[in-house]
Simulated assay, not measured.
Amino acid sequence: MSLSEKHQWFAMRATYRRGMQIKSLLDEKGINNFIPMRYEIQLKNGRKKRELLPVISDLIFVHAAQSELQQVKYRIPYLQYMIDIRNGQKIIVPDEQMRQFIAVAGTYDEHLIFFNPDEVNLRKGTKVRIIGGDFEGYEGIFIKVKGARDRRVVISLQGIIAMAMATISPDLIEIIEEPKK
C-alpha cells in the first residue's frame, strides 16, 4: 500500500452466504469491516433462541486501501465489489456516512427497521438533523415507513441499505430541508 492511498469503505458482497466467514478472515488480518446485524428469534430443536444474525446475508462493508483489498480478494474469490449500476463504479461509502450508520446499526436496537432502498421513497421525506440524545448531529430523512406507526428518521447508504431509527422525540429533530413538491 502506498502512503498516498487512503482507506475507504467499500460496499461488498460475500457470495454463498459467507459473510460471517469473510468477517472472521478480515478480523484475523486486522482489516476493519462491518456487517449490519440484528437479533432474531430462531426455532432450534423446538426451542426459541435469540440469535444475532446479518440483516442482509451477503452484505459486508470493508474499510481498507484499494491495493490491500485487492490482495485479500485474490485469496477470497467469493468476496466481490458492489457496483453502482448508474456509472459502473465500485460503491464507496463516505467515512462520515459510514460512521453514523455503524453507530446506529451497531446498537442492535430491535426498533431499527432495515429496508432495501427501493422500499422507501426518500424524496417524500424531510431532511432532518438530530439535535439531542445519543445520535446528536446525525442526519437523515424524516418519513413514514412501512411497519411503523409513526414517522422515523431514515439513514440511507447510497442505494445499498436504508435503516429507520427507533422513534425519536420531535423536539430532538431540526428540519434542514423540506421535501420538494
Rank of each mutant, 00 (worst) to 15 (best):
I85C: 01
F135T: 03
L79R: 14
A162H: 00
L43C: 06
G30P: 02
G140H: 08
I161V: 12
G132C: 05
M37H: 04
E110W: 04
K49F: 10
M1S: 15
L43F: 01
K23T: 01
L122V: 10
L172M: 12
L43E: 12
I56V: 15
D84V: 04
F101A: 08
L69D: 03
Q66L: 12
E136Q: 07
K29Q: 15
P94L: 05
V128T: 07
Q71W: 09
G19W: 04
E28D: 11
R151L: 05
S156A: 11
H7N: 14
Q89Y: 06
Q42Y: 13
A11E: 14
P179C: 05
A166E: 13
K73N: 10
Q8A: 11
V145H: 10
Q8N: 13
V128K: 05
T15C: 09
N33W: 02
E136C: 06
G125N: 00
K146N: 10
E110D: 11
F61T: 08
A103R: 08
G159N: 08
G88C: 02
P54R: 12
H7Y: 12
K124A: 13
I35E: 07
M82T: 09
E139F: 05
K127P: 00
T107P: 03
S57Q: 12
T126W: 01
M20Q: 11
A64F: 10
H63I: 02
I92Q: 08
I60N: 14
A14I: 08
I155Q: 01
V72S: 14
Q71E: 15
D150F: 04
Q100R: 03
G147R: 04
S156F: 00
M163Q: 01
M12V: 13
G88R: 05
S4N: 14
V154S: 02
F34D: 02
K44N: 13
V93Q: 09
P117S: 07
I22F: 09
K6M: 11
